[in-house]
Computed example of a mutant assay.
Amino acid sequence: MAGIDPALQAHLEGGLTTVCHAWKITRKDGVCLAFTDHDLPLTFEGVAFRADAGLSARAIAQTTGLSVDNTEAVGALSDASIREDEIEQGRFDGAEVQAWLVNWADVSQRWLQFRGTIGEMKRAGGAFRAELRGLTEVLNRTLGRVYQKPCTAVLGDKQCRFNAGLPGYSITLAVDIEDRGRSFIWDALPGFDPEFFIRGRLEVLNGTAAGLFGLIKHDRTKGKKRVIELWEPIKGNVSTGTQVRLLAGCNKQMETCRLKFDNLLNFQGFPDLPGEDWVVAVPKSTGPNSGGSLR
């Protein structure tokens, strides 16, 4: 087996083996969870692997070409390990996964069998199933520019380069009134015009939903109240007093980039692309034809 530790290979060829499997899941928020199917905990690479997690995995399908290596992990939902509410909140989406074959009698003898990310996760009956995707999965992603009039960048990313944390483009405050995690109401948001936060983000800063965010659908005034409505509810408990941050929105238009953000040099759209009327325009036999615009 290519890449396997020689000591572990010799152990496997010896006939009587003491091997088990170990998994480590590292979420994007930095939380690390580690499990083993051995009946006692293991420790290596500075990580403690729990033995009572009830996690198992199917055989790993690996290839030597560019097709995606894949497997599936199955385990029990538990407040101490993988919780149902955290799956619902998307905290395991895209998490990094490593899987080893380990000699539990001598953990220095181990083989990293699989490395990839978590894909689709399903839960039912107190258990979960997680699709594990190999490193070659990223080769399936479409790369390249899209030629269109609106900007293709995300506000604040490395293409946009705008610092969304500048004064006047965000506000941090406590939740006053909330409706099912989707609508948030305040008496006022001084200094911010109506619709200023449309297409922006609402980020949760503390509480059990800390780290979650929602995209803003509407920002409007209703009487003397300011109403922020999200496209989808925050999948966590956001109650009165929870600290949130509102980030300015961008509609991807050149005028907005120039006037609202003063960031026209980094505009990633093509506002001068001809429209559909130009594409279907044809020469006319009547009237002057000086070679100018047909529109």
Rank of each mutant, 00 (worst) to 15 (best):
C160L: 00
C160T: 00
N163K: 08
N163Q: 07
N163G: 02
A164S: 12
A164M: 11
A164N: 11
A164D: 13
G165R: 06
G165E: 09
L166M: 13
G168A: 05
S170T: 08
S170K: 03
I171F: 02
I171R: 04
I171Q: 04
I171V: 07
T172P: 11
T172L: 10
L173N: 10
L173A: 13
A174D: 07
V175I: 04
V175Y: 00
D176I: 11
D176E: 15
D176T: 06
D176V: 06
I177N: 12
E178R: 07
E178D: 09
D179S: 12
R180K: 08
G181R: 08
G181F: 07
G181Q: 05
R182P: 06
S183T: 10
S183D: 14
S183W: 09
D187A: 14
D187R: 12
A188C: 09
A188I: 03
L189C: 04
P190D: 02
P190R: 07
G191F: 03
F192H: 06
F192E: 04
P194S: 02
P194L: 03
E195L: 09
I198L: 09
I198M: 10
I198E: 07
I198D: 12
I198S: 09
R199M: 06
G200N: 00
G200K: 02
R201H: 11
E203P: 10
V204R: 04
L205D: 03
L205A: 01
N206Y: 06
G207K: 03
G207C: 02
T208W: 06
T208Y: 10
A209C: 12
A210M: 08
A210I: 04
G211V: 05
G211Y: 04
G211A: 05
L212E: 08
L212M: 10
F213I: 11
F213L: 15
I216V: 13
K217N: 14
H218G: 12
H218V: 15
H218N: 15
H218Q: 15
D219C: 12
R220Y: 15
T221C: 13
T221G: 11
K222P: 06
K222S: 14
K224D: 14
K224Y: 11
K224E: 10
K225S: 13
K225L: 12
R226A: 02
R226W: 03
V227K: 07
I228Y: 07
I228V: 03
I228C: 01
I228G: 00
I228P: 02
E229A: 05
E229Y: 04
L230R: 06
L230K: 06
W231V: 11
E232F: 11
P233I: 04
P233K: 00
K235P: 10
K235H: 06
K235D: 04
K235R: 14
G236S: 05
N237A: 05
N237V: 11
N237T: 09
N237K: 08
V238L: 00
S239D: 13
S239V: 09
S239W: 08
S239F: 09
